[in-house]
Simulated assay, not measured.
Amino acid sequence: MGVRARLVDGLRRTVATRMALGVIVLSVLLTASFVGLLGLISSAPLDVGSRLPAYVLVMGIVFVVGIVRLDTPERDGATVLVAVAGLSVLALVLTGLATEGAFYTALRPDQVITSQLILYFGAAGLVCTGVVIWALHHWREFASSAPAE
């Protein structure tokens, strides 16, 4: 095997590993978020108010990092600001729901794990992960499409 072939093979493995890790992390995050949503709509004694400042801090960190990473002279400032604001709110919601899902699972494991509900939420998390990956690959198609008349 030549040097080029080994390099390409190593690069493919690295990309596949990173993609697999991303799928796993996003699926677990979405699954925990679904459980957190269940915990919030049920009457579980979740003390969301005491953790809300931490969720808002995460939102602020995502906002600043997003501005630093996405704002370039070639990009429209308003577009960057709207995109980063949306990502920040998404980070707030996902962080909050996932954390509350972890607390709900710890408080009521019988309603999450033993009821096999976690399997359904895991499947939903995987499906949502697939939709997110698809949307990230095809977002330009929707951004550049003219509205149907």
Rank of each mutant, 00 (worst) to 15 (best):
L136M: 14
M19Q: 11
V8W: 04
L97S: 03
V25M: 11
G125K: 03
G10Q: 04
W134S: 15
A32H: 01
P73F: 04
A102R: 02
R69E: 12
A16D: 14
L37H: 03
L46K: 01
L11F: 06
E100T: 02
G60K: 12
R51I: 05
E141A: 14
G66M: 04
F34N: 01
A32L: 08
L40F: 09
H137C: 13
F142Y: 15
P73L: 09
G60T: 12
L81N: 08
Q111S: 08
L94G: 02
V35S: 07
R4Y: 00
H138S: 15
R51Q: 05
V131N: 13
Q111T: 11
F121K: 04
L11M: 03
L37Y: 11
I61S: 10
A102W: 10
S50F: 06
D110T: 07
S42T: 14
M19K: 10
G96D: 01
G130T: 07
S145H: 12
L70I: 08
I41L: 12
L46Y: 01
A85S: 13
G66K: 04
L57M: 11
A123N: 06
Q116V: 13
I118V: 09
A135Y: 15
R18P: 03
W139F: 15
L40A: 15
G77M: 09
L29F: 06
T114C: 01
F63G: 09
L90M: 10
M1W: 10
S88L: 01
S88M: 01
A98D: 02
G39S: 04
P147D: 08
V112M: 00
R4Q: 05
G36H: 04
P45N: 12
F34S: 06
L92E: 04
V127E: 08
T114D: 15
R18G: 11
L92Y: 10
T17A: 14
L7I: 08
T95Y: 05
H137Q: 13
V8A: 09
Y104V: 05
G86I: 08
S33T: 11
L7T: 00
L46G: 00
A5P: 00
L38G: 12
I67D: 03
S145K: 12
A44K: 03
V131L: 15
A143H: 07
A16I: 13
L94R: 05
G130D: 02
L26P: 03
L29Q: 14
L38E: 13
S43N: 05
T14E: 07
A85R: 10
S33I: 02
E149L: 09
L117C: 00
G39R: 05
R13H: 06
S27T: 10
R108T: 11
W134M: 14
S42R: 12
I113F: 13
L92Q: 03
L37N: 04
H137K: 15
V15N: 08
V65D: 15
D47L: 02
Y120S: 00
A135I: 10
A78R: 13
A123R: 07
P45A: 09
A146W: 04
G125C: 01
I24S: 08
Q111H: 06
G77K: 11
L97V: 03
V56W: 03
V131W: 15
L7Q: 10
V8I: 11
V89G: 13
